[in-house]
Design a protein around this nucleic acid. Structure first.
Length: 551
RNA sequence: GGCCCGGUGGUCAAGUGGCCUAAGACACCGCCCUUUCACGGCGGUAACACGAGUUCGAAUCUCGUCCGGGUCACCA
């Protein structure tokens, strides 16, 4: 054995496999030409974040559009920051949003697929095997620097105004001898393993980013850590090994990773792997004061995907919105294919924005309103009660006390209508929106429409209630209003009134406004005829009397 | 500060040297339709960060300036 081999044996004595073993264990995938293998690799340091959902959606679409595979991998190499239940929340969240997972973690604890384990903490031996190989070849070495020494080194570098980091002459242990290393190990000193970088800062590394195009940067020359002192790899090393062994073809990840791409490329080269293709996704931004910034977990409620569930946005609406930011040609496609499943959209990474999109709540609302307007009452009932059950127990009780009544209410201006209303974007708006259907939520309003006097309102209402029949269809219903108009000095037809505004106090439309106020306490509601029919005669009559007595 | 990546209406964006008098969507405003409320239809306000250069011709190519974002860990 030469010195490098002795060193490798000294540092990682338990590792017996060689890289060949893993190369054979995880053969190339048998997929058609052009199929892309993508993944999302969340770190369970928190709950599902909008950016993670977005990244997952993009990777999912890339795989789907190419007939490939999309898998999940848990990057839990930082045990200090890990959050209990994080994996279940993240994977469960992806599932709730309809992101299908072909392979990897499919729930908090189950995984499937032939390229696992899919959790990095279970792959220590694999990483160590490759690290050992690098050690044997002299491409890596142990470093015994303490955190304090490293910090002191950084201070010195800052004072001297030289580039900070563990590189070149600053790489203290770069030329450590086997004997020195052995002595340190025997003393029980902790060590990390660093890459012996062959890069040169004055040379350029170039790669073709699938989203951003050609990117050129100085080569990495830093002897960065590949194995931490606990034997667990850093992100960089785990990324190279895992994405190679799991036979990933394309890595779409946040663009904060661009700056470490030279490290990754060097790792692929040194390890003898074919590099993956990168696509760096611009982050979703948020306007803070006057400044744009990346959406942040701490400051922005909408950063945590949980926010959308609480607000009651249908998951499909959030996905639809995300698709509009992800692909600039998605909205055109949607216009041409209004009823297609978004998964049928051919996703082209070239159509992804190179700059970060500002999160636009107005746009989300619009997308969501359209989505909800297309749902039939039965589906709305299911989704709304599901939401209420979790987030508004009182409303849930009211909604489900009489399901038939609630469903009839939801059918007004919805079922059998070509273009349904777009009145609400999320379920938490419904309690207020539908309040007048329920006596316990109803708030009367004793105001008057612009052109109707108190006396006329009372006179109209007391006559009207004598003729009202919930069985009336829309035209009969309005004819009855029209019939009462002339006697009160109102025009029966809107056109009549418009033609000669001086001859009338207003039109039948104004009278129906009084009715609306009396019945619902609102100036704006869906089709009043339909509402009254759901409410029933008694409830309508009592509200009308209440109004007459109080206005 | 070094290194990257960006900069077209308030927002998302189309645009790859002449089809640009710059598309579309959201938001906003107006009009029309209308049996109320909506839906819908039609229209409007509003943009190429700035300065040089290349060219017959620049939103598009080059350089500089400015502005914004990201990154410089035994975190991912």
């Amino acid at each position: 054995m030469n010195e490098n081999e002795l060193l490798a044996e000294l540092l990682l004595p338990g590792i017996k496999n060689t890289p060949d073993y893993y190369e054979n264990l995880y053969p190339l995938r048998n997929l058609p030409e052009g199929a892309r293998v993508t993944r999302v690799a969340p770190s369970p340091t928190g709950y599902l974040h909008l950016g993670t959902l977005f990244t997952a959606l993009v990777n999912r679409m890339i795989a789907t559009s190419s007939g490939g595979v999309f898998y999940t991998r848990i990057e839990d190499t930082d045990k200090k920051r890990e959050v209990e239940g994080g994996i279940a929340d993240i994977i469960g969240g992806l599932d709730r949003f309809g992101i299908a997972i072909d392979e990897g973690f499919i729930s908090g604890e189950e995984e499937r697929g032939a390229y696992g384990p899919y959790k990095q903490s279970c792959r220590a031996e694999i990483y160590q095997c490759y690290a050992k190989e690098l050690l044997k070849k002299g491409l890596a070495y142990p470093c015994f620097c303490t955190a304090e020494e490293l910090a002191a080194m950084r201070e010195d570098q800052e004072k001297l105004k030289v580039r900070t980091g563990y590189h070149g002459e600053w790489a203290k242990h770069r030329n450590i001898t086997y004997a020195e290393a052995k002595a340190n190990v025997e003393e029980g000193k902790p060590f990390v393993i660093r890459l012996r970088s062959g890069g040169d800062e004055s040379r350029r590394v170039v790669f073709e980013d699938v989203i951003k195009g050609r990117i050129e940067m100085p080569e990495n020359d830093e002897d960065f850590v590949i194995l931490k002192s606990d034997g667990i790899p850093t992100y960089h090393f785990a990324h190279a090994i895992d994405d190679h062994l799991m036979r990933t073809t394309h890595v779409f990840r946040g663009d904060e990773w661009i700056s470490s791409a030279p490290k990754h490329l060097e790792l692929f080269k040194v390890l003898g792997f074919k590099p993956v293709k990168y696509g760096h996704i611009s982050p979703i931004m948020k306007l803070d004061g006057g400044a744009k910034r990346k959406i942040s977990k701490r400051k922005d409620p909408e950063a945590a995907v949980h926010f959308f569930a609480e607000e009651g946005y249908p998951t499909a609406a959030v996905i639809e919105y995300l698709m509009t930011i992800a692909a600039s040609d998605f909205e055109d496609w949607r216009k041409a294919n209004p009823d297609s499943d978004y998964r049928d959209f051919k996703f082209n990474p070239k159509k992804m924005s190179v700059s970060g999109a500002l999160f636009d709540g107005d746009k989300l609302n619009d997308v969501s309103k359209i989505m909800i307007s297309k749902m039939q009452s039965g589906d709305v009932y299911a989704a709304l009660t599901d939401w209420a059950k979790e987030f508004d127990g009182e409303f849930y009780g009211i909604l489900t006390e009489n399901p038939d009544y609630t469903k009839k209410m939801l059918a007004v201006d919805r079922d059998g209508v070509k273009n349904a209303r777009k009145d609400f974007a999320k379920w938490n708006e419904c309690k207020d929106y539908f309040s007048y259907y329920f006596d316990s939520l109803f708030t009367p309003s004793y105001t008057l429409p612009e052109r109707v006097s108190r006396e006329d309102a009372k006179a109209f209402l007391s006559e009207y209630i004598k003729t009202y029949d919930p069985a009336d269809d829309r035209s009969v219903w309005f004819d009855k209003i029209k019939a009462l108009a002339p006697a009160l000095g109102f025009a029966a037809e809107t056109k009549e009134y418009k033609a000669a505004p001086d001859k009338f106090k207003g039109s039948a439309g104004d009278l129906s406004g009084v009715l609306r106020l009396a019945i619902t306490g609102r100036a704006n509601t869906p089709d009043l005829c339909g509402i009254m029919s759901v409410l029933g005669f008694d409830r309508c009559a009592s509200r009308i009397n209440l109004y007459i007595n109080n206005v």
